[in-house]
Design a protein around this nucleic acid. Structure first.
Length: 811
RNA sequence: GCCGGAGUGGCGGAACUGGCAGACGCGCGGGACUCAAAAUCCCGUGUCCUCCGGGACGUGUGGGUUCGACCCCCACCUCCGGCACCA
């Protein structure tokens, strides 16, 4: 018998699919876009070409692979594109290390990845491929930036920013993890720099509220985004500094504790600090403290014990006119709220620690419902609190007290309800070479002027040296930097910072819909036809960064009238990560396994199946070599059985045999698992069961049918061998073959095994027709000797019958 | 601390809506084929007891609801992930 030869089979079918453009989906003609068509957009997060693909990627792309095949065979026009997130630091760092240009490094990696993807035989529409470093793409990234700029949603300002001393560039807040650079792990520093921001904070509420438009997103991703946006409701309260005729606002989520404010704290960076102490005996101590704080890293600032200095000034608490001391302490952060707080040591742990250290009064103003109060202690938040020691508000339940105090102060203009967010504006500029140039010029006369649309794209210039030096390497391209102002034609200088790569990946999924368009980023009609993405697939590591930015971009594009949808990804599936030796498989950890050697030895089909068989796709999995063997054995067995069955004639009509029934049950199971449950490991087990049964009963008259069923069901997983066997079984074009349907008549079982319980324990099993009436079931169960021995003549107080499921006696 | 997820044989995992726990695969034991091996095929494989009929126990721990719980409820333990001097 001819042996299973994956190398030959896979090469053959990959060639056929390519020649026949099997997986390309052209856009409908413009006048047909309106017509509702059965279409679906399946998208996996685009790879970052910092090296070859490893098994973690294979697992990720296999999800989209199975879904795409499954939906195509259900009659959908399936768009499943692929592209490359090509700009960014790893390529630039690699180029610096190895010598050469980041473009060459990137394009070499892209070519290698594409080759690997083609070798896996994935059903990708390569006619839509894009790469974010190509001018044909970043032209429109720049065009979008200009639209954002015109709307005031991209702006430049000096701000305290996070600086990575290793990568020599600023980072977005989202790219700082535990005070360290997300990419290289270096501890970040605080700097005050003029930088570009996207005004994502304008969309904080929309990003929260419109989560309701997301049909099926994992709860934990939504939670992570909610935490990141960090919406807090409370009040802004005004404290007067009578001596100076100044007033300072604070934000608090606990206006009900205002009567317990016994001191007041300003962040060392607060602009009023120097005025408060100017010329006073406290001046040098306070300014020294502020300087020390500035020299500390955020991490140091968090880890040391709380400390601070008194300013000699007092603020007036608006609820009771009390004068409370103003301190400067670095546990108050300028970035959040107003950079100033009212401190309530009895009800805030941080304030408590500070008050303890400096001997400041601790006054309890909220108490459990019984009103018991103990001054001097920290009282944690509990249910059903009431206000105490709070003047006219004493005795009120805390929530009511909150409202009443704010209302009362609001009457005098001393407070108003307020909402604050943890979310900061998105810092998008980077002082690096390998990124999309920011398309503006700086003119002495006109200020910042965007490059006119007709002059886009602003091409990334060639430079000799892209080693990071703290300013963008583009600044060295003097001929490029020197330009003329589009507005006044006077001399001007180009912006030399480049964009964060997350900007590139915030709209690529729309570009795929209309990837060749050279007049606009995409046609709105085409975009609205394909999007939102029906099924987005990617790693949980992008739960905040990419997924939040992309949602923001789409909302802005909607408000600009560029698209008709407000959320980019209707359904999101986050696959688990692949681990090896206890660590996430990644290039930086050096624990990757390349699919190449496995593909070479066992074929792509085995690798494709194994990565899904290893476990549920939404959970993390540990790479183990041992299980791979089982898949290889299965494919050989399938091959042998199919070759045996192929010589038999087809039988029609299908005889009602055990194998015929098993085949139809398998159709039902696989269809439900993939289509409804998104369980991609269990269908493989189901087809294995079917194949095992064929092996046990090769002479069953339905054996050939069962074999064809196994082949057609395994096609989304092992596309090549399935196609080859399908052909040898006398058919063609399995990738277009309608998905099989289970015949309800054959799904119905002739007999069921019904357990009989006595006091909750199974004592016997009945083999009966599934529609046996209840009375008969009970009679049969009672007649059982085994059951009788357990009933032991005792009274049956209760009998439970679940038709088709079980009989249960209680004595 | 707050929020989210998970805990099932030697291992990866299955059990979908409260109704036969351990499908499928790996590993392991036994057998067939073979001069032998590989490959392949067959049988067995949760733990303990057993007069070999079967019995008891068993899904992180302790309780509860129920005729019946891996599944629901309460409390706890462990692990993973997110957020956190955020006022």
């Amino acid at each position: 018998m001819e042996r299973y030869d994956p190398q030959a089979i896979e090469a053959k079918w990959q060639r056929i699919w390519r020649e026949q453009r099997a997986f390309e989906v052209p856009n409908p003609e413009p006048d047909e876009l309106e017509r509702h068509a059965q279409k679906t957009y399946v998208l996996e997060m685009l790879p970052y070409p910092s090296g070859d693909l490893h098994m973690g990627h294979v697992r990720n792309y296999m999800l989209g692979e199975v879904v795409a095949h499954f939906r195509r065979r259900h009659g959908y026009a399936v768009m499943r594109p692929m592209g490359f997130d090509a700009f960014g630091l790893p390529a630039e760092n690699a180029a610096i290390k190895e010598g050469g240009h980041p473009r060459d490094v990137t394009e070499r990696n892209i070519a290698a990845i594409r080759r690997q993807m083609e070798r896996m035989g994935w059903a990708i529409d390569w006619s839509r491929v894009l790469s974010s470093h190509e001018p044909s793409y970043y032209h429109w990234t720049q065009w979008l930036f200009v639209r954002f700029f015109e709307r005031g949603l991209a702006y430049r300002r000096e701000a305290p920013v996070k600086w990575c001393p290793n990568d020599q560039t600023v980072l977005a807040n989202e790219q700082v993890v535990d005070g360290r650079c997300e990419r290289c792990g270096a501890e970040v520093e605080a700097r005050n720099l003029e930088q570009w921001f996207f005004k994502i904070t304008d969309y904080a509420d929309a990003l929260l509220d419109e989560m309701s438009l997301l049909e099926e997103w994992p709860e934990r991703v939504l939670t992570m985004q909610r935490n990141w946006i960090g919406r807090s409701e409370g009040a802004d309260v005004v404290f007067e500094v009578a001596d100076l005729g100044e007033h300072i606002e604070v934000f608090t989520t606990r206006p009900d504790t205002l009567f317990g404010a016994t001191f007041f704290v300003l962040a060392p960076e607060h602009p009023l600090v120097s005025r408060l102490v100017e010329g006073s005996e406290h001046e040098s101590a306070v300014l020294d403290y502020a300087r020390h704080t500035a020299a500390r890293t955020t991490v140091e600032r968090e880890e040391k014990e709380k400390d601070g200095v008194f300013t000699g000034r007092y603020a007036t608490n608006p609820v009771n006119g009390e004068r409370i001391p103003i301190w400067v302490a670095d546990y108050v952060l300028m970035e959040y709220g107003t950079g100033a707080i009212m401190a309530v040591p009895a009800h805030d742990e941080r304030d408590y620690a500070f008050a303890e250290r400096y001997g400041i009064e601790i006054r309890q103003v909220v108490a459990p419902a019984d009103g018991s109060a103990v001054d001097g202690a920290f009282v944690a938040h509990t249910e059903n609190e009431v206000l105490v020691n709070s003047g006219e508000f004493s005795g009120m339940p805390a929530p009511e007290g909150k409202r009443a105090i704010v209302e009362s102060l609001a009457g005098r203009g001393a407070a108003r309800a307020a909402i604050r967010y943890r979310l900061r504006d998105w810092l998008l500029s980077r002082q690096r070479y390998w990124g999309c140039p920011i398309p503006v010029v700086h003119c002495d006369g006109c200020g910042i002027v965007p490059v006119p649309d007709e002059e886009l794209p602003v091409l990334l210039p060639e430079v000799d040296e892209y080693l990071p030096k703290g300013r963008s390497p583009l600044a060295a391209a003097e001929d490029w930097v020197a330009t003329t102002c589009p507005r006044c034609a006077g001399p001007a200088r180009r912006e030399t910072d480049t964009m964060d790569t997350f900007v590139d990946s915030s709209w690529y999924f729309i570009r795929y819909a209309d990837a060749q368009n050279d007049r606009e980023p995409f046609s709105r009609a085409v975009a609205d036809y394909w999007l939102p993405v029906n099924q987005y697939i990617g790693g949980i590591e992008h739960a905040i960064l990419h997924l939040l930015y992309a949602r923001f971009f789409v909302k802005v594009m909607h408000d600009l009238g560029l698209v008709g949808f407000r959320e980019p990804f209707a359904r999101l599936f986050t696959q688990g990560m692949l681990y090896r030796d206890g660590a996430k498989m990644s290039k930086s950890k050096g624990n990757t396994i390349s699919p190449d050697e496995y593909v070479e030895r066992y074929g792509a089909d085995a690798a494709r199946m194994y990565l899904l068989f290893i476990g549920p796709v939404d959970q993390d999995a540990e790479w183990q070599d041992s299980g791979f063997e089982g898949i290889v054995r299965f494919l050989h067995r399938l091959w042998r059985i199919a070759m045996e069955q192929a010589v038999k004639p087809e039988v029609d009509p299908l005889p009602d045999t055990a194998l015929a029934r098993k085949a139809h049950q398998t159709i039902a199971k696989v269809t439900d698992d993939i289509g409804r449950r998104f369980a991609l490991n269990t269908p493989i087990a189901a087809v294995m069961e079917l194949v095992n049964e064929i092996q046990r009963a090769p002479e069953d008259p339905a054996a050939r049918f069962a074999t064809e069923t196994a082949v057609t069901l395994i096609q989304p997983y092992a596309s090549h061998v399935a196609e080859e066997l399908w052909e040898r079984l006398g058919h063609e074009r399995l990738w277009e073959e309608p998905w099989p349907e289970a015949d309800p008549a054959l799904l119905a079982v002739e007999t069921v095994e019904i357990p009989v319980q006595v006091n909750g324990k199974i004592r016997d099993r009945l083999h009966v027709s599934p529609d046996t009436p209840e009375e008969e079931l009970v009679a049969l169960a009672r007649a059982s000797e085994r059951v009788q021995s357990y009933l032991d003549g005792g009274e049956v107080s209760r009998t439970i019958v679940v038709p088709g499921k079980l009989v249960s006696f209680v004595t």
